[in-house]
Nucleic acid binder design. Structure first.
Lengths: 115, 115
DNA sequence: TTCATTCCTAACCGATCGGTTATCTAACTT
DNA sequence: AAGTTAGATAACCGATCGGTTAGGAATGAA
């Protein structure tokens, strides 16, 4: 089963190394070697991370001599932020406080039944 | 290495089954069996997903007779949405358009050099 | 007491993940 | 032409993931 775009995006940014790479790319394009520099990790390992990011559409790559510079493509993150915000909304709505109330009533009820 | 909270949260919601469970919990508490019902998946599989969600702090669990109802805890998602929004911002800023300009200049330059 | 229901745990399985080393290609440099 | 640099690929490794089946514990019901 090929995963949906949202799952691709989220699992791509679930890794701290890949998030650090993305943050680095906010300062502008960078070569693979430049991206690898801050990490105690081999170049092939970074290449793999870049492939994951590229597969999720979070970066794109150019060509300039023997360099293949990476640049940020933030578009897929918009879908992700959209999904997550559904739940942030939930957290802030009165629905949440209502749920809290219901829950407290239920647990009080359960306690009453138990004793 | 134990992963940071943000990585925990993101990898928890990177799975479509777990996202569906969270969405179901927006309608209120539910038992494990209720949560499992929509899926063609064994109960233990759902239990594992619930453990992941609980480990990420995205759900909490009560006790009521032989049931262990789950309820949504959306708080960790706030950190996640905060991180992702950094990049949504990036996408909308003039910095992005500036990058696009620089890139176009560079690729024009590369093309010129190539010919 | 016995049975049913709910849920968890353990053991296992194949696939994927995140890293390594070794090797290769492509392009620049001398 | 020979050497260097940037990067990709392949093969491998241990750990984790996402699922399974089997079996056990806790609670409620007959």
């Amino acid at each position: 089963m090929q995963p949906d775009q949202l799952s691709l995006t989220l699992s791509a940014i679930a890794d701290p190394t890949r998030r650090a790479i993305l943050m680095r790319l906010m300062d502008g394009e960078a070569s693979v070697k430049e991206l690898a520099a801050p990490f105690e990790m081999s170049i092939p390992a970074i290449c793999k991370h870049l492939r994951v990011l590229e597969g999720a559409g979070l970066i794109s790559r150019g060509r300039s001599a023997q360099f293949r510079p990476c640049r940020l493509e933030a578009q897929p993150l918009r879908e992700a932020v959209g999904w997550i915000e559904e739940f942030s909304k939930f957290w802030d709505t009165s629905l949440n406080r209502l749920d809290g109330l219901l829950e407290r009533l239920q647990s009080a009820d359960a306690t009453a039944r138990k004793n």
